[in-house]
Design a protein around this nucleic acid. Sequence first.
DNA 1: CCTTGTTGACGTAACGTTAATTCAAAATAG
DNA 2: CTATTTTGAATTAACGTTACGTCAACAAGG
Lengths: 334, 334
Amino acid sequence: MATQRDVARAAGVSLAVVSAVVNGTSHTRMKESTRTRVLQAMQQLGYQPNQTARSLRLNQTDMIAMILNKIDNPVYGPLRHGIYEAAAEHGATVLLGDAETMRSGSQFLTRLLSQGTVDGILIRGEGLLDDDVMAELRSHPKPILILEHARDHPWIDVDDRRAGEIATRFLVNLSHRHIVFVGGSGYLSQQRYLGYQQAMDAAGLTPAPHLATGFGEQAGADGLRQAMQAATAPTAIVVNNIMSAVGVLAAARDLGIAIPDQLSVVGIHDVDLMQHLRPAVTAVRMPMYQLGRAGVEALYDLIAGRPSAGGVITDPEPELVIRDSATALTRIRD
Amino acid sequence: MATQRDVARAAGVSLAVVSAVVNGTSHTRMKESTRTRVLQAMQQLGYQPNQTARSLRLNQTDMIAMILNKIDNPVYGPLRHGIYEAAAEHGATVLLGDAETMRSGSQFLTRLLSQGTVDGILIRGEGLLDDDVMAELRSHPKPILILEHARDHPWIDVDDRRAGEIATRFLVNLSHRHIVFVGGSGYLSQQRYLGYQQAMDAAGLTPAPHLATGFGEQAGADGLRQAMQAATAPTAIVVNNIMSAVGVLAAARDLGIAIPDQLSVVGIHDVDLMQHLRPAVTAVRMPMYQLGRAGVEALYDLIAGRPSAGGVITDPEPELVIRDSATALTRIRD
DNA sequence: CCTTGTTGACGTAACGTTAATTCAAAATAG
DNA sequence: CTATTTTGAATTAACGTTACGTCAACAAGG
């Protein structure tokens, strides 16, 4: 394909002029007539700048890496979207990476570590990245931002504690007294349980222990079963994540438990599909899209050497989306 | 960061030797002792090859672009996964692109068109890419493979006609006689309807007209409503895509139609979530993961200048996943 | 008329690789 | 002991950009 050299030859000017035309550089000036001549030559030859050469020269690739827990986790849909959009606004494209396959010495990691691949890295690994990998990443010359709570890295995350609190308080306000928290493992679930605890405490209720059954539909089903075989069955459940909420719903159907009449369910996290289930799931929507956008902005602060806003995102807050799976307690049960 | 030059200086050898050590080139030979000396220097300086410089020199970036209809379409989960994995096996990483935002002159398109960005491009746009964009893409120096039926490009796709046929035949075998096809727009839906027609014809039944209500949950709900207000209500529905199937289920619930007792539903395409709905949706699973893998393989054939296998993937075939939303017709209704 | 400034461009040195070419020294053959 | 081959490496020319430094020609100012 045509290079700047070809264009220069065709337009009868030097390389420097072509480059100046391409970049709009002010240092190298030229007559308007020369400029149009160059432009015409570019058009005629179908010139397209070579991104690689540019990157080498400028030490900047206009690409960022997005490394996620599972490349296709539906919960991360809006996060991916926010990252993609915000990156585009910065003129950058997004390189995909899966935390699950990021082992020490892996293809992707090696490429990532090599210089000149990306301008920065965004990671949400949810504990999947071990210390070895993190140590290797730390040696990366370009900035890395973690999209979850991190100890010794710049990080930014949504307010998981608050989400647990909001879900629980909603149920408390619906007069529920026996509320159970079905959770998963890890820091996230911990935080949400903490919020649950706080809301229970604030209402003068005793929090139930954390039913940590894991992630996903099976975990939800297991959680429901465990919850229901307690001495006094709960009238409401806060489910740690929306995938588990789907499991809770299915298990309830199988067990003949009517939702919301016999049991109110509030999920944390939200997926578009949830509104199309029956009953439609009441859930706390986390600002994942905004997390994505904020993550990209923070990463570009880091890249530019500016001070970067990190920590928990409190604006926007997690937002309660009221649908059909939770209702006010009418019969008193104990 | 350290470059080959730094390593060469540290090890007291020339650049060529370092490059040879890095690449394992046989042309430039060296004593084992020199090799280890270079290796040590690399280790000590924390040398990481510069991908950009390599790309420039080799005219190969080890990246491919994956352009999808909607970056987060849940139906494409397995497709993304297949592409990602197969790309990794080729030592390549994946650059993300959304067909929706691929307008003529857009950021992403411009980058893609510039030389040296990717080694090849995989597209599934489902009609979203207009002729302008396709024309621009055609000028791209690297191969482009379309993951759907295409007129004048190498393409590869799953067997949509067969999926419609399988779904319909299943219902026919369950003694259904009034079967309706709720579809969307575009070539895909057309193909699936064609399969539906063929199965109906083969069973000596008259196909109902294509209820093309579009894509997504709302489309499904609309389709169901339209179908039910026909002179003789259908006993079974084939739904063009799984998102619409969710809409059909929700609408049925709202309309008081019992599934599968009053109406059997079979969806085309499958998403993991579908098995966790109640009723769990019987669906025809398309080999999207394999499409992703096959797409990458075909693209690399193109890249290597080998003849590339294209057309409709017939092995594996679409596969019927029987769950709870379709049942045999017991009462005769007309 | 000389000085200074401006306009419009050109030449060229990097950026970090890779691979072809060259070449001295050591080993082997005759 | 000389001629030839092999070993082990060094030099260097790209790859396509960008940006710094230079410079001739001309205009304006004193």
